[in-house]
Simulated assay, not measured.
Amino acid sequence: MLPGLPVYISVLFILIAISTVWLFYRATNYNRTTLVVLQGWLASQAVMALAGFYERTDTTPPRLAFLIGPPLLVIVALFVSKKGQHFIDTLRLEQLTLLHSVRIVVEIVLYLLFVHKAVPASMTFDGSNFDILAGLTAPLVYYLAFVRKKITRRMLLLWNMACLGLLINIVLTAILAAPTPFQQTAFDQPNIAISYFPFVWLPSVVVPIVLLSHLVAIQRLRTPW
């Protein structure tokens, strides 16, 4: 774990990761296989992080690729395979929309990590990260689209595309600020948090679930129900 970091920040992020998994589990109509896979992935990444695997940042390719690569491959497999497409078709769009509310607390944690010199300012809402807007608007969009039926499919599609852009922005910012051979920014205060437990769960669990939620919504909203 990060030396000198207050325990409450780590506990808060653990709750975020668990909440994200739980909300996605609800979106799958409580698919137990999904829950078991996610629990296994959470556990394996926790073990690797606690063993110090990700603290070695000078390797090529960067070890951080083990955080990002497998989830991205799974997402691709879901969209290109028949079984994966069937799984996507069963996901509940309203729950995927509400899931994005976790991004509010994620941004709060990132700011706390910045204060404790574990991430650069560019990764916070005080810098160039505006991802908190997705979290703040998610409950309202959920209410207006699925409870009051006041938002059209086109408006919901545009919201998902805009929020996907916000996600891509912070992901690229975080990657370029990580202390790897490919680091491009934030040399005075790099993104070291994602090399430690529990923050390895941000790129390996929380971000992939958020990404998948947007991609599924965009695909579904572009085609007739």
Rank of each mutant, 00 (worst) to 15 (best):
M1W: 08
G4K: 07
L5S: 06
I9P: 06
S10Y: 02
L12I: 07
I14E: 11
I14P: 01
L15T: 04
I16C: 13
Y25K: 04
Y25G: 03
Y25N: 03
A27E: 02
T28H: 07
R32K: 14
T33L: 15
T33S: 08
T34P: 01
A43W: 11
S44P: 01
Q45K: 11
V47A: 14
A51G: 09
F53A: 06
Y54M: 04
E55T: 12
R56S: 12
D58Y: 15
R63A: 09
R63P: 07
L64I: 11
L64V: 10
L72D: 01
V76N: 03
K82Y: 09
Q85D: 12
F87S: 05
F87L: 14
D89M: 06
T90A: 11
L93R: 01
Q95Y: 15
T97A: 04
H100S: 02
S101D: 00
V102K: 00
V102P: 00
I108C: 09
F114P: 02
F114K: 01
H116P: 09
A118P: 03
V119N: 02
V119M: 09
F125T: 05
G127S: 04
S128W: 13
S128T: 06
N129Y: 15
N129V: 14
F130N: 06
I132Y: 08
A134Y: 01
G135P: 10
T137M: 14
A138W: 01
P139M: 02
L144Q: 08
A145W: 00
R148Y: 04
R148M: 13
I151E: 00
R153I: 00
M155Q: 15
L158N: 04
W159E: 00
M161A: 13
A162Q: 03
L166A: 12
A174Y: 04
L176G: 03
A177Q: 03
A177D: 07
P179K: 02
T180L: 15
Q183V: 11
F187Y: 13
Q189D: 10
P190K: 05
I192F: 11
I194E: 05
Y196E: 08
P198H: 04
V205G: 04
V206E: 03
P208H: 07
L211Q: 02
L212E: 02
V216Y: 03
Q219R: 13
Q219A: 12
R220N: 06
L221N: 03
